[in-house]
Every structure is written in C-alpha cells, then in structure tokens.
Amino acid sequence: MKTNQIWFVTGASRGLGLALVRQLLATGYSVAATSRNLAELRGTVPPEQAGFLALHMDLGDEASVQQALTAAVTHFGRLDVVVNNAGFGQLGALEELTDAESRRNFDVNVFGLLHVLRHATPLLRAQGRGRVFNIASIGGFTGAFPGWGVYCATKFAVAGLTASYAAEVREFGVQASVVYPGYFRTDFLTASSLGTPAQPMAAYQAVRESQQAHEQSINGNQPGDPEKAAQVLIEVSHAEQQPLHLFLGADAYQLADQQLQAVQQDMQQWQAVATATDLAVNA
C-alpha cells in the first residue's frame, strides 16, 4: 500500500485515535492529529516525529475546528483521509439524565463531527478525492443497552448523517464510511472518558447493573485490539470502493446479526397489516 496519504485524525490522544496515529506514523504516513489536550497528545506522540503535526482543537468551537483544518492543509498541502474519532460515552437512563448532560453528548459526538465535515468537505471536494471515516459504535446500529440511550442516539445520528453525506459527496470523488466498533480495549469506559448521571435513580435496576458491568467487569476486559482495528481502517482507506457500513470486531458482527434478525422478524410479523395502508383506488 502506498503511504503518501495525509490523514487528519480527531480525538488522537487516546484510544483508537492514538492507536491509529501511532500505526500510521510507524508505516510512513503523514498525520495531522487533534486533541482538546495538546500537552497530552504531545506526550503520547513525540511532536518531533517526521510527518506528524499535533493540533489543539475544541470540537465544540467551530472556529477552532476550522483553524485546525486550515493549519493541517497549510502544513501538508492537502488532506486525503479524515477520521472523525473524537467522542465520549454518556451513561444514564433517559429519565435521569439532565438536559445539559444529554446535550453535551450530542454537542461532541454529533455537532462536533459536523463541524469537521463542514470545513473538511470543501477541501476534499476541490481536490476531487478523499476518504472519510466517521467512528460510531455498534451502539449506533442496535440500541439494546440499558443506560446508553443518549449515547446510542448520538451514534445512530452519526450513522444516518454518514449515509446521506456519502450520497452527497460521491459525485466529487469522496467516499465515506460509518464505522461500528464493538468493545475494544481502550480507556473508553474509564472515569476520565465516561459520563455518568449526576442524579442516578435507584428505580432503574437494569441501568445500574449495566453501569456496574461496564465500569467494573467489561472495562479492561474488552476483546478488541485497537491496533488491529487501526490496521483495518488503513487497509480500507486503500480499497477502490470503501464500504458505507464498516463493522469492527467479532462482537460487533454478532450484535449486528441479532439486530438484523429482530428487524426482519418484526417486519414479517406485521407486514400484512402494515403494508395495507395505501389509498384506495377507485375501480
């Protein structure tokens, strides 16, 4: 694979973003990497490394996003691959989460991603080529996780907007994928990356059990290797036609299969009634 691609990766100071940046640099790619915490990013990836540009970017500030993208293009001359990886998890039953907690998750996971697309797309469109990977979650394909309703809603939004975005930019030579990772062994479930409700309600036993399981049992025992996930993204970036839907991990495939079967079952069960809804045609 040719390694002359220039990548723009958000949320690069930890997790999948960090694994991707390290692997790209190790194999000769050029990378503009962003983080809210520039010192943390520079501490994990030495800034003097060739082909690496560390940038501060606040996803909640559209001007900051535009400045980071402008700096990347000024430095490298172009961008070939954009990875919208930045985001965080928000636990809590829909009833117990405050409006501010819910909106904060959407501001980062959805509107922050939109800020990047809004300012990266003119660059990709003008050059007539480009690849985009929007990192969602298997929770953006199936929402059957008690306590993850708002987070799943943000990732369902990412899936929906990516599908429309891919259709919009296809004529300009730009391809886009929504990526659905399963459980990968990153710090996603640690206290520094996971939001929890300020006002938990004891009535939601299933939510509390889910929260405890994710914080204590699943955290640190996730089956997925982020280094291998990064390898998949790099390989797909060179495919002649990248997939619109990219599932990562055996667990993601299993959960997706279960969701597809459940949808098909519901459709078949109610098809006769639900499709008899057209306006009557006079003989």
Rank of each mutant, 00 (worst) to 15 (best):
D257C: 00
T162S: 15
G160F: 10
H238Y: 08
A198H: 03
E215I: 07
A229Q: 04
Q264C: 05
T275P: 02
A191V: 12
P243I: 06
A239I: 00
T196C: 00
Q199R: 11
P181T: 08
Q241I: 11
V273L: 15
A166M: 07
F184V: 01
N219D: 13
A198L: 12
A250N: 05
D251C: 05
T196K: 06
Y180N: 13
Q259N: 07
G182T: 10
Q231Y: 01
A230K: 06
L260H: 00
L233V: 04
A274C: 08
Q205G: 01
S177H: 07
S237Q: 01
G249H: 07
D251I: 07
A203V: 13
S177R: 07
L260W: 03
V179S: 05
K228S: 04
I234C: 02
A229W: 08
Q242N: 01
E168C: 09
F172R: 06
Q261A: 15
E227Q: 14
V263H: 08
Q231V: 12
S217W: 05
Q212H: 11
A250V: 08
P200R: 05
V179T: 06
V178P: 00
Q258H: 04
P200V: 01
E235Q: 14
K228H: 02
A262P: 04
Q261G: 03
Q265A: 15
F188H: 02
W270M: 12
G249I: 09
D251F: 07
G182K: 09
Q271I: 12
A229T: 03
E171P: 00
S217Q: 13
A262R: 15
S217Y: 01
A250T: 05
T275M: 15
D225A: 03
V179C: 07
I218V: 13
A203L: 11
Q205L: 05
M201H: 09
Q216K: 12
L244K: 02
S193R: 14
H214R: 06
Q199Y: 13
A202H: 02
P200S: 04
Q231I: 06
E209L: 09
E171C: 10
G195A: 08
P200C: 05
H238T: 13
Q199M: 07
A159V: 12
V236T: 13
L255Y: 03
A239W: 14
H245T: 02
A250D: 11
Q269I: 00
D266F: 06
F172W: 15
T196L: 09
A276V: 02
A274K: 04
Q261R: 13
F172S: 12
L233F: 01
A230I: 11
V174E: 11
D266E: 13
Q241W: 05
H214E: 02
L161T: 13
Q222S: 11
Q199F: 11
A167Q: 13
P226L: 12
Y204Q: 04
Q211P: 00
Q231E: 14
